[in-house]
Design a protein around this nucleic acid. Structure first.
Length: 468
DNA sequence: TTTTGAGTTGTTCGA
DNA sequence: GTCGAACAACTCAAA
């Protein structure tokens, strides 16, 4: 009797407990269901659909080499899986456990109709296992991280099963190309070619990063350098397990060398326990006073223009614009710059953090409900363990502080000829410097849409007003 | 229950 | 240019 492997964002064969358990029991039927219904507004965004297409293609061809087929279905996942199981007379379904509220609901529904076996593998630790002494979820990262370390390292990753048996007959499947996951008119993903979705691409990225992890702690803040891991989309899609990442990075290295990076990996766990505790974390601020803040009205002309300028990278602040354009072109943004653009939207433009979160959701290849919600709430100051609102990041000082000149040259090419000391703040540069670089402000590149000083005072006043 | 120490990533101002 | 304190006063975790 075959069993079904229900794939979701766990598109790998090695260190994949559902795959392993199913393969040990007998023939397997691997299934992926494109479910745009149960997540509602959180259905997979446009950039991630590009990634998903390539990742499914990769998994499918790996399975094919083993004589197996990836069955593709579309619709509400639990209904589709249950119907398939019923039709084939199968009871057993193996899956990795997921924690987004819509997946929790789908798991509950499916468990009522088949023998659903959920396996760990999404995180380093399962939510609910690392808690305070009174059993409450942690609201501060550091004590969470200290306790998590005590139950680390995670179990040794397992290899992909040597043998996977095919069933006697294969059920019907959609064609991947019919899902239209790739952009066509226009094809805005031409700049995504730096990525290699799929398990092989993930493992190769991991090996490459592990060799450079010693530079991570110092270098991760420099957007002009390529010293972050860039593993986030692979981790989100489950092409590599966090346990595998931990072991490859930590192997034969001193704790001091790898701690900063591994703590970032632990943030995935922390953010996920946040959405388990607060399923609505993507919409509702953790501190309710933030709903009372006098946010910019997006029905006004100025509100609309400001949001659009931010989205398109036309704010007149080069570091902000570089980040937003990198996001648009590649589906990814350097972490330091994510913080700067987020705080600019929330505090300088006083636009609700949920607007930025939605934009990221659609543009990021690594969009993840827990991480995206937690990080936007961190930037807004509204979440658990967040950045205090009055601690407002200043794009004028952040840009030179983290030596972003070359990053700006890459993503805001109209400013490329400006010297280092002028490129961060072109509107404060000498007329002659601008002229020599062939730039006329307001024509070739925008004037700043808000002044930092005025925006700062407005934001702090709006924040104070929520407390009275 | 109360107290105490501490908290991912800052900014500004004045000496 | 560099350094330390103030910002404004919050919340959490553990003793």
């Amino acid at each position: 009797m075959p069993s079904i492997i229900w794939f979701r964002e766990d598109l790998r064969l090695s260190d994949q407990a559902a795959v392993r358990a199913a393969a040990e029991e007998g023939p397997v039927i691997p299934v992926y269901v494109l479910d745009d219904e149960s997540p509602g507004k959180w259905r997979t965004g446009a950039a991630q659909r590009w990634w998903l297409h390539h990742s499914l293609k990769s998994l499918s061809s790996t399975l094919q080499e083993k004589g197996l087929k990836l069955i593709l279905l579309r619709g509400e996942a639990s209904a589709k899986i249950a119907a398939l199981a019923e039709k084939l007379g199968i009871d057993r379904v193996h899956a990795i456990e997921h924690y987004e509220p819509w997946w929790v609901a789908q798991q509950d529904k499916l468990a009522g109709r088949v023998d659903l076996q959920l396996h760990p593998g999404r995180l380093l630790s399962e939510p609910g296992t690392v808690t305070t002494k009174s059993g409450e979820p942690y609201k501060i990262f550091t004590p969470f991280w200290r306790l998590l370390q005590q139950v680390m390292p995670p179990p040794e990753p397992t290899r992909r099963p040597a043998n996977m048996l095919a069933p006697d007959a294969w059920p019907d499947s959609d064609e991947l190309d019919d899902w239209n996951l790739l952009p066509t008119d226009p094809d805005w993903a031409t700049g995504f070619d730096e990525w290699t979705p799929g398990e092989e691409g993930a493992l190769s990225r991991l090996d490459d990063f592990a060799d450079r992890v010693a530079d991570y702690q110092e270098g991760r803040n420099l957007p002009s350098e390529d010293l972050t891991s860039r593993l986030s989309p692979h981790l989100h899609m489950g092409e590599v397990s966090p346990a595998k990442v931990w072991h490859v990075v930590a192997a034969n290295r001193q704790w001091q060398t790898v701690e900063t990076f591994l703590s970032e990996l632990a943030w995935r766990d922390f953010s996920t326990q946040a959405i388990v505790t607060f399923p609505d974390y993507g919409d509702t601020p953790g501190r309710e006073q933030f709903d009372r803040l006098n946010w910019t009205d997006l029905r006004t002309v100025e509100g609309k223009e400001h949001l659009t300028a931010w989205q398109r990278g036309l704010t007149g602040y080069p570091i902000v614009d570089a980040g937003m354009r990198q996001l648009w072109a590649t589906g990814w943004m350097h972490n330091r710059v994510r913080m700067i653009v987020a705080q600019f939207l929330i505090k300088h433009l006083l636009i609700r953090w949920q607007e930025g979160e939605r934009w990221f959701w659609d543009c990021l290849v690594d969009a993840d409900y827990g991480n995206n919600s937690q990080n936007w709430q961190w930037s807004a100051g509204s979440g658990i363990d967040s950045h205090p609102f009055p601690r407002m990041m200043n794009p004028k000082t952040q840009s030179p502080k983290w030596e972003a000149a070359d990053y700006i040259r890459q993503w805001v090419p109209e400013l490329a000829s400006l010297p280092d000391d002028a490129i961060h703040l072109p509107w404060e540069a000498d007329e002659r410097v601008l002229h020599d670089a062939g730039i006329e402000l307001g024509k070739d590149y925008p004037e700043p849409i808000v002044s930092h000083q005025a925006a700062r005072e407005r934001a702090l006043a709006a924040y104070r007003a929520t407390k009275s």
